[in-house]
Design a protein around this nucleic acid. Structure first.
Lengths: 366, 366
DNA sequence: CATTTTCGCTGAAATCTCTTCATAAATCTA
DNA sequence: TAGATTTATGAAGAGATTTCAGCGAAAATG
C-alpha cells in the first residue's frame, strides 16, 4: 500500500472524483466505473481507486450527478400545515415510502396560502424534483398544479379529489358528508349547520359542504346553515354565538375537520352551551385525539398515513412507468365513529326554536 | 416585438440559458448578467433577453447553479417522527423560518432508528445541503452528527441538550424533571415511577430520568422505579400491570413525553385503575391535546415551534456568519401545567402498600 | 485633426462534478 | 502477424457563473 504525503486533507472541501483519480493515478472515468460497477477495470486499478476513496473519504456529489442525469432522487411534498395531525401523518407516510425507494422529500408548508403554494411549486421545479405529492388549496384553479401538468412532472394529489385525468389519493368527501347527515338524522336532528374554513383555502371543505347539502336534501331537511371562518380566527366563540343567534334552531354542527370540531366544542362550552345536550358536533378526519377528549368526538375516520403512502407509491409508479397501485374503493375510504359529541335530540330541544343560555364569556381566547 | 417561428416549445425539456441566448441573439453571459442584475447591459439587449425569457418560460436550473456556486439553498432536517406533534410543530417552525430566508427543507424521519439517522445524514451531505437542523437519538454518540462536525457543515441541534461546543435549542430537561418531582411532592406523593422509551433511542428521556432521580434524592424520596419500553410497544397495559405488581407502592408516574403519558392513562384505565384516584400521571411536552382530554394532563409545557424557529435561525446565522440569535434562559424554557391527572395523594392510599384492583382486561390492544 | 484613453457592452472560455461514448493501448488468440 | 479481447483513457456534454479580453464609440489629449 503506497502512502501519500498527507498533510491533513481539508475535509471542509470534500474530495471530488478528480482528486480520487489523481491519487489512484488513473482517469476520472475509471473511478466512476469502479465505484458504480459499470464497466471493466483491472484488479490492480480497482484496488488503487478503492484505497484512494477510503483515504480521501470520497463520496459522489449528488449535484454533479443530477446535472448529468437530470434526475435528483428528490420529491417535492406540499401540504397546508403540519399543525394538523392529518397532514403530519400523511407526510410521515409519504416520507417513509419515498425513503424506502431511495428518494428524499423536500417539504413545504403553505399555511393555506395559494400564493405561497404556487411560488413553492415553482421553486421545487427549478430544483428539478423528480416528482410531487401535494395537497393544493384548490385542485381546479391551482396555478402551481397547472405548471406541473405542463411540464409533465410525475405527481399525485393528496386529499384533493382528482379533477379528470389526475391521480389522487383522497377520501370521498361527498359520500362521507352524506353519511354524516344520515347519522344526524338517525339521532332525530333536523336543523343542521356546517362550519368550515373559507372555501378558497380548501376545496375539501367545499366538497364536504356540497355533500352535506345534498344529504340534507335527500333527507328532506332544510338547507344547512353555513359558517365560514378564517384560518387564523381567534374569537370563534363570538362567531359561533352570532351564528346561533341567527340560526337558533340548529341542533347539530358538522365541522369540516376534527381540529375545527374540537375548537367548536370548546367555544360552545365557553358561551355556556353543553355538548351534546344543547348542540351535537360531528368532525371529520378521525384524529386520535378525538377518542381521548371528553366528550369523545363523533367523526368520520380516515387513514392519512395510508393515503400518503398511496400517493407516494403512485408517484413512484409514474416515475418507473410501472403499474399504478390499486386504490381502496372510494366508498369505503372512511368510517363513521360514534362518539359522545353526537347524541339523540333531547325532548326539550325538539320543539324548541330558541337556545336560552347565552352567557357571554369574559375570558378571551388566546 | 419580433416573433419566432414557434412550433410549440417542448415544455417537457425546460429551456436552458443557451436557448435564451440563442433567441435573444446574444451570449449566455449576457443572459446571466441581465437576469441576475450582475453587470451592465444595453437597454436593447436587456429587452430582447427578457422577451426570450418570457417566450420560453425560462427559469434557471438550480442544479446547474448549485454545481457552480457549491451552494444549494437547501437545509436538511432530521427528526424522529411526525406522529408526535412535538416534532411536527418543531418542523413546522423550522420549515417556516427557512422558507422565509429562501431555503427549502429536506425532511427525514428516522423512526428513532440511529442507523437510518446516520445513513440519512450521509445522503443529505452528498446532496450538499447548506445546513442541518436535527434531533438525533443520542447527541454524544451520533455517528451522523460527528461527520457533520468533521465537514464543518453549519448545523444546530433541536431538543438534544448540546454537548460542548455545539449549538442547540432544547428544553432544560434536567431542571424540568426536578420541577416535576417538586410538583409530586407538593401533592404528598412519595413513591414515584418513571416511564420512557428505551434510552438508546432518546437521550432526552435519559436526561429527564437523571433529573428525576436527582429530584427524588433532593426531596429525600427513594429512587424512582424505572419502566423502559420499546417504541412500538402494543401491550403497554400488561407491562404496566407487571410494573405496578413489582412496585406496588408507586402512586405517581412521570412519563417522558405526553404521548406516552396519555397512553399510560388509557392503559391504567384498561387494567382497572383510576387516574388520578389510584395513580397520578405527569407528562412532558405540553401538547395541546393534553388540555382537551379527561382528566386533563398535568405536564411540562414547552414551545416546540419556537425551538424549531430558533434552531433554524441559528443555522442561518452560522451560514451568514452573523450574530447567533439569543436563546431563552434554559431555566425558563418550560412551564408546569397543572391538570386533573395529578392530584393529592388520597388518605386511603397514603399508608397503603398495595394496589387492590387488578382486573385483567380481556381486550387486546390493537 | 490625429491619436490615445477611457468606458460601456459583449461573448468566448474556464470552471464546477459526474457519466457516457468513442478511441487507444495492451494483451491474448489463431 | 492479423484479429479479437480486455482495459484504460480523453473528450464531450449536462446548466449555470464569472473572468477576461475585445470591440466599438466617445472623450481627452497633443
Amino acid at each position: 500500500m503506497e502512502t501519500f504525503p498527507l498533510g491533513g486533507w481539508n475535509l471542509r472541501q470534500p474530495a471530488t472524483i478528480k482528486d480520487v483519480a489523481r491519487h489512484a493515478k488513473c482517469g476520472v472515468a475509471t473511478v466512476s466505473r469502479v465505484l458504480n460497477n459499470t464497466g471493466p477495470a483491472s484488479a490492480d486499478t480497482r484496488e488503487r481507486v478503492l484505497a484512494a476513496v477510503k483515504e480521501l473519504q470520497f463520496e459522489f456529489s449528488e449535484v454533479g450527478r443530477s446535472l448529468q442525469s437530470s434526475t435528483t432522487r428528490t420529491i417535492g411534498c406540499v401540504v397546508p400545515s403540519l399543525a394538523n395531525p392529518v397532514y403530519a401523518d400523511a407526510v410521515q407516510g409519504v416520507q417513509e415510502t419515498f425513503h424506502e425507494a431511495g428518494y428524499q422529500t423536500l417539504l413545504v408548508c403553505t399555511n393555506y396560502d395559494s400564493e405561497v403554494e404556487s411560488q413553492a411549486i415553482r421553486t421545487l421545479m427549478a430544483k428539478q424534483v423528480d416528482g410531487f405529492v401535494l395537497t393544493v388549496s384548490d385542485a381546479l384553479s391551482s396555478q402551481g398544479l397547472r405548471s406541473i401538468q405542463n411540464r409533465e412532472v410525475p405527481h399525485c394529489l393528496l386529499f384533493n379529489t382528482a379533477p379528470r385525468d389526475e391521480q389522487s389519493w383522497a377520501v370521498d368527501d361527498h359520500s362521507a358528508a352524506l353519511r354524516v347527515v344520515d347519522e344526524f338524522v338517525e339521532m332525530d336532528h333536523v336543523h343542521l349547520g356546517f362550519l368550515a374554513l373559507k372555501f378558497k383555502t380548501s376545496d375539501r371543505a367545499r366538497q364536504r359542504y356540497e355533500g352535506f347539502i345534498e344529504g340534507c336534501f335527500r333527507n328532506k331537511l332544510e338547507r344547512p346553515a353555513l359558517l365560514e371562518i378564517e384560518e387564523d380566527t381567534q374569537d370563534l366563540h363570538i362567531l359561533l354565538a352570532d351564528f346561533l343567534k341567527e340560526n337558533p334552531s340548529v341542533t347539530g354542527i358538522f365541522a369540516s375537520n376534527d381540529i375545527l370540531a374540537l375548537a367548536t366544542i370548546r367555544s360552545l362550552r365557553a358561551i355556556g352551551l353543553r355538548v351534546p345536550n344543547d348542540i351535537s358536533v360531528v368532525g371529520f378526519d378521525g384524529i386520535q385525539v378525538g377518542e381521548m377528549v371528553d366528550p369523545s368526538l363523533a367523526t368520520i375516520v380516515t387513514d392519512p398515513r395510508m393515503l400518503g403512502h398511496g400517493a407516494a407509491q403512485t408517484v413512484l409508479s409514474v416515475i418507473n412507468k410501472s403499474e399504478l397501485p390499486a386504490q381502496p374503493d372510494p366508498e369505503f375510504s372512511f368510517n363513521f365513529r360514534h362518539g359522545g359529541s353526537l347524541s339523540p335530540l333531547t325532548a326539550e330541544r325538539k320543539g324548541d326554536e330558541k337556545i336560552t343560555a347565552f352567557s357571554t364569556p369574559n375570558q378571551t381566547a388566546q
